[in-house]
């Protein structure tokens, strides 16, 4: 069952019945439809933690370099960056332990539900770090750059705001953000 669970999914077209299966697609499509979704198999794999799936650097390795962060704006106009770990800037011994931050942010980018708790955590930090100031808003930011094919130069990072949460709406009224 471990083997069944770890098999790759059938290609998207086959799963959506747009494309006729070819070769091993028949097996993958069969396991997707008839075995992985079996309640007994699913329970056996998911409850005690036996599930596994191996997609590291596959089908293609990531071609986007990403790091995360958050910006805090106080009601008095002061702004500061939340010190979310950026692996590239850390000394080598610290990189090992802090890798969880990179992995977490990779998932935060795609998981809308995690944005609220992320800003909650940053808010609590800001209250401790700047106890005399009121937080106006917190913005989760993603910095990314595309790695071009060999022979091309890597471009600069582009900042993309993911989510901005207002803590004192009246303080930022008329700001247009």
């Amino acid at each position: 069952m471990v083997a069944i669970w770890a098999l790759p999914q059938a290609p998207e077209g086959v799963r959506e019945k747009r494309v006729r299966p070819f070769g091993s697609d028949y097996l993958l499509d069969f396991t997707d439809r008839n075995l992985k979704n079996q309640p007994a198999v699913r329970t056996y794999m998911m409850v005690p933690g036996c599930r596994q799936y191996w997609d590291m650097f596959s089908p293609n390795p990531s071609q986007t370099d990403v790091y995360g962060g958050a910006k805090i704006r106080f009601t008095d106009g002061h702004e500061m960056a939340y010190p979310y770990h950026r692996i590239w800037l850390l000394p080598i011994p610290q990189k090992y332990g802090a890798e969880r931050y990179r992995k977490f942010f990779e998932r935060v980018r795609r998981n809308r539900a995690s944005w609220g708790p992320f800003t909650d955590r940053v808010f609590r930090w800001a209250k401790r770090y700047e106890p005399g100031r009121e937080v106006a808003w917190i913005e989760i930011q993603s910095h990314s750059r595309r790695i071009p094919p060999p022979g091309n130069t890597v471009g600069p990072y582009v900042m993309q705001p993911i989510y901005r949460r207002h803590f004192r709406p009246e303080a930022t009224a008329g700001e247009g953000g």
């Binding site: 790759p8 293609n60 390795p61 370099d65 950026r86």
Partner: peptide, 23 residues
């Protein structure tokens, strides 16, 4: 098996990318 479905593994450039990810 999963990598076999990837274009970068087939054209021989896959390992070029991870080492360029600064993180």
């Amino acid at each position: 098996w999963l990598k076999y479905g990837g274009t970068l593994w087939k054209d021989g450039t896959a390992t070029y990318y991870p080492v360029r990810l600064s993180e």
